[in-house]
């Protein structure tokens, strides 16, 4: 046996324990979900029968709620992703220079990220109460009667989006901050000597340099927004009506509240396909748009 072959065998042996775990706890369940999606299964009775693609037919042609859910998921992502990225980038730019007090503000914006998501959502639920909530009490100082935030359809969606943006903003801010700080200073110097103003410096120096980071943040944030669950579960339970029922909450609802495990698995397959497609699309876009990737 050659040395190279021997090396590769011992390499495989080293990764074996982790890989076995991956097979059993990650790949196995994923495959199982695909199998379940072709079955009618009940969590309550434990019965299962093979029904082919009927779950998918039902989803696209019979289940009106599925379409509502998809629309809500898109609205959520469409609201969250641009807001999160714009704010994170703006904060990163503002806090990248060594002014006094940047450390303090960086900490403030990052603090929600390390806060327990559950505690965060529950506290916000209190703040957004109709009469006694702090938000509405604050508004009433200016003679504004705030809505019952989590109980009225449009406001509920806005509330969960804003809530989620505030919670995760800090993480993207830190990633952007690292990218912005790493842009070599001599480029700015050169640009300034050429007479570029602040907007031009951002447009022609900063932005191209942080393009790979931007694409990565976009992928993470978008995929994360498709997978939102905890905020919805804790703040609105998908309500009022189905105004904030997003895809993952609907999967939970079908699988664990009304016990249709087969149908929930089929929904999970759709989520998997959507997230997978998004990731692939952005991967290829990233190659085309990033000039500085190493």
């Amino acid at each position: 046996m050659t040395q190279a072959r021997r090396n590769s065998i011992s390499g495989y042996l080293f990764i074996a324990p982790q890989f076995v775990g991956f097979l059993v706890f990650v790949l196995g369940p994923i495959v199982a979900v695909f199998v379940f999606s072709l079955q009618s299964r009940s969590l309550l009775t434990g019965e299962s029968t093979f029904i082919g693609l009927q779950n998918f037919r039902r989803m696209f042609f019979e289940d009106g709620l599925f379409l509502v859910t998809m629309r809500n998921t898109l609205v959520f992502a469409g609201g969250l992703v641009p807001a999160n990225m714009a704010l994170a980038l703006g904060l990163a730019l503002a806090l990248s220079r060594g002014r006094r007090g940047v450390g303090f503000f960086r900490t403030v914006y990052f603090a929600p990220v390390v806060t327990s998501a559950v505690a965060w959502a529950i506290v916000w639920r209190f703040l957004l109460e109709a009469d006694r909530g702090l938000v509405n009490q604050y508004l009433s100082v200016f003679s504004i009667t705030g809505p019952n935030w989590l109980r009225e359809p449009g406001w509920a969606m806005l509330s969960v989006i804003v809530n989620r943006v505030l919670k995760n903003l800090g993480m993207n801010m830190v990633i952007f901050l690292a990218a912005v700080i790493n842009v070599p200073g001599e480029y700015y110097e050169a640009a300034t000597l050429e007479g570029a103003n602040a907007v031009q410096r951002f447009r022609h120096v900063t932005f191209p340099h942080i393009m790979p980071t931007t694409m990565m943040v976009l992928v993470i944030t978008l995929v994360g927004s498709f997978k939102v669950f905890d905020t919805i579960m804790l703040m609105t339970q998908g309500g009022p009506g189905h105004a904030t029922t997003v895809l993952v909450y609907y999967i939970y609802f079908q699988g664990f509240r009304v016990f249709r495990t087969g149908y929930a698995s089929a929904l999970s397959v759709v989520l998997f396909v959507v997230v997978f497609a998004l990731t692939l699309a952005q991967w290829s876009a990233r190659k085309r748009l990033s000039h500085y990737e190493t």
Binding site: R151, E152, P240, G241, H242, F253, R257, V258
Partner: peptide
């Protein structure tokens, strides 16, 4: 009952306005 309870909640939310 589980299904009746959960599926109707959306419609009940309309009532509580």
């Amino acid at each position: 009952f589980s299904e009746i309870d959960l599926e109707s909640r959306g419609a009940f939310d309309e009532l509580w306005r």
